[in-house]
């Protein structure tokens, strides 16, 4: 469970990027964050990941205030090609974080194989990331996060650089992983449809300074599919509402 209270941040005394942000993400919930560019999404993400210390407020993960990078958290970045290490095979990339935890070689291999299987890449283990397509590379970085077995998964515009078809496949992969492993997921996106399609709840941010404009509970059925869900009148309604909020139009 993640609790953010009074979070604010400014870089070197400049105008604040984030201000007075309060947000709770319950255990096992999938929350999507959507907002216009410049709303402080990546700063928020860095505060939660413990990469920067916020100038105001605090972030509490599973009862512990975040001070440095928390052990039970994994991040999936947008730039999969730069986030994966090109000199390591797919298997070694996935297994690398486990080495930091002191897992031995056979444990690492086993968990990496399992994670790769769960993203449908069991056969690609011995390849290098740059031998794979963009969508497959992002699957590898998802597998890397899964193998780490975090209780909390942070995703930073994970499907911003793949084509539409791949994007839909990866969205369904996230839903499937979320269901199967029951981990808490916070996913940042700039895609309004995606925020509604994936989220149990959508958090809409506003900019100047970055703050929460609105939170919407998604009342769609838990099981979703690309064709049916997107045609659901409730999806269409939510999408319009989120769209209006992102553009700053009141409903």
């Amino acid at each position: 469970m993640l609790e953010i209270s009074g979070l604010g941040h400014s870089y070197g005394g400049a105008a604040p990027v984030l201000k007075g942000m309060d947000l709770k993400v319950a255990e096992g919930e999938l929350v999507t964050i959507v907002g216009p560019s410049g709303c402080g999404k990546s700063t928020l993400l860095r505060c939660i990941a413990g990469l920067i210390a916020p100038s105001e407020g605090k972030v509490v993960l599973n009862g512990t205030a975040i001070d440095g990078v928390p052990d039970e958290l994994a991040v999936v970045f947008q730039d999969y090609s730069r986030s994966l290490l090109p000199w390591l095979t797919v298997r070694d990339n996935v297994a690398l974080p486990l080495r930091r935890r002191g897992a031995n070689r056979s444990e690492r291999r086993e968990q990496a194989a399992e994670a790769l299987k769960s993203v449908g890449l069991a056969d690609a283990a011995s390849k290098y990331p740059w031998e794979l397509s963009g969508g497959m590379q992002q699957r590898v970085s998802i597998a890397r996060a899964l193998a780490y077995r975090p209780s909390f998964l942070l995703m930073d515009e994970p499907f911003g650089s793949v084509d539409a078809q791949t994007r839909e496949d990866l969205e369904d992969l996230v839903l499937q992983v979320h269901r199967a492993q029951g981990m808490t997921i916070l996913l940042v996106t700039h895609d309004i449809d995606e925020s509604v399609y994936l989220g149990d709840r959508v958090v809409v941010l506003a900019r100047n300074p970055g703050r929460i404009r609105e939170q919407l509970q998604v009342t769609l059925p838990a099981t979703r599919d690309q064709i049916g869900t997107r045609a659901d009148p409730e999806f269409v309604r939510l999408r319009a509402e989120v769209g209006g909020l992102v553009r700053g139009v009141a409903h």
Partner: peptide, 26 residues
Amino acid sequence: DPTAKETLRTFGFSRTQVLLRVSLRS
């Protein structure tokens, strides 16, 4: 690449480990 360094930092590697595992290799 800063993304590669940041990725390893989020997996809990220390700055020295990131220097050796990412920067030196890269």
